[in-house]
Amino acid sequence: MSAPVAAQPAAPAERREILKVKGLSAGYGPMRVIHDLDLSVYSGERVGIVGLNGHGKSTLFYAIAGLTGWQRGSILLNGVEVGRTRSQGPGRYTHLVVRQGLALIPQGDEIFHGLTVEEHLDSGAFTPRAWKERKERKEKILKIFPPLVKLLKTPVGRLSGGERRMVSIGRGLMADASLFLVDEPSLGLAPKIGKGVMEALFDVELGQSAMIIAEQNVALLEGRVDRVIGMHVGKLKGEASASLSFQTRREL
């Protein structure tokens, strides 16, 4: 089958497969949210996942992190199998997945109320490599989110929603991850602040890593990501490059 591959537009040599999901089903109890889903993400890619509420965007992320009630199918993260057939203990293996290079920035505020912003950023860097160079990483984050500089010693519980989201995203970016999963970064924020947060995400230098952003609002993603994938009742639908998303939007 080498000929059709050769017939494709030649792929850049350094494009590495960061995430390869094959036949993933996941759900909670008797409810199946994700149906037999395949997805590949390559290094240096920024992928947008668009879909309505309750169509499984967050569950897809949780399934990659091993946080759903049960799941089946294979998930290769950096070539290491992290998805297993599992029917209990959500979150039991999450830290191992995270150690393989996953940074999940969950929907809403999953923060530690009592820790200060600085400790919070440190907590993002629990993987051994990231812990050693957490100073430089922190500086990088503070460059992305300058408002946080003043707040470094404040407990996170006292911050506003936008600042919390910045902390939450900053914590995710602290990690030495090769795959960033960002779940609805603009949710619950004022449109302007939401846009700012999105801009910050788009400006992050990816290098060898990849990023998947789930959003309900296609307009925020348009033109800024490499691919937009629609998600509909637990399956991925219609893949298009971002420039085409204007034309394919009706089918999403």
């Binding site: 995270v98 009592g114 629990f126």
Partner: peptide
């Protein structure tokens, strides 16, 4: 301390 405050988020950060 992180686990004290939010075990769910703690598992997410590894």
């Amino acid at each position: 301390r992180a686990m004290m405050m939010n075990p769910h988020a703690a598992s997410i950060v590894g």
